[in-house]
Design a protein around this nucleic acid. Structure first.
Lengths: 104, 104
DNA sequence: CCGACGCGTCGGGAAAGGTTGACGCGTCGG
DNA sequence: CCGACGCGTCAACCTTTCCCGACGCGTCGG
């Protein structure tokens, strides 16, 4: 298991897979229909997402449904947060406020 | 220019480089001192960051200073935002903070 | 019970990424 | 003017990633 969330998000196919799963659970073949990709390729991308904890699988009959598991994305959010003040004036005020809160 | 921000962030060395640049501009050799890496490796990581627009270079004498350019990180933030409602943690913290502010 | 279906996984080949040593270029100090 | 310094870049190598065809396994329908 790699648990490398940033690495999992580096691939555009995997990002689109997560976007598709936002609307609800889907089967592998259903997801594969979204791309010009073979089913094995999609299956392996899903394995990477599973390794990063971004997806949970639910076998049902001969299908296998994948569910979005967004919690690990918090790691990305946490990493991103200290940078927010450098590109968004509006968020900068909030960022400063949070700093003020933390140091109280 | 690759402009692939997600790909640029996939490497832990590049993430640490950005973290280091948050504190101010630094020279290549200075940044290389932060890692067990040769200077060429760091130089090429910086080239990737430059390709993604995450870094701006300022030649000064025989040094070359790199500045953080956080604007492209907004793309990551924008992609991440629709997922926030699925893990809620930070959203809840912000909500709590706003409530506290209102009642002051 | 048997063939079709939906899967994951494995082996291999192509492509991309990471690191290194060697080189060349501009810059500074003596 | 010359040697040392700080850089970027290149060729080469190794590793990783990405994709496919082929296979095997469990499941469903007739």
């Amino acid at each position: 298991m790699s648990t490398d969330v940033f690495g999992a998000l580096a691939n555009p196919v995997r990002r689109r897979l997560l976007e598709g799963l936002r609307e609800g659970p889907r089967s592998t073949g259903d997801l594969a229909g979204m791309f010009d990709l073979g089913r094995p390729a999609v299956s392996e991308h899903l394995a990477v997402l599973r390794g990063a904890g971004l997806v949970r699988e639910e076998p049902r009959g001969r299908h296998r449904f994948y569910h979005l598991e967004a919690a690990p994305l918090a790691e990305v959010e946490d990493w991103l947060h200290p940078f927010e003040r450098y590109w968004n004036r509006r968020l900068r005020a909030l960022s400063d406020l949070l700093d003020e809160e933390d140091s109280r």
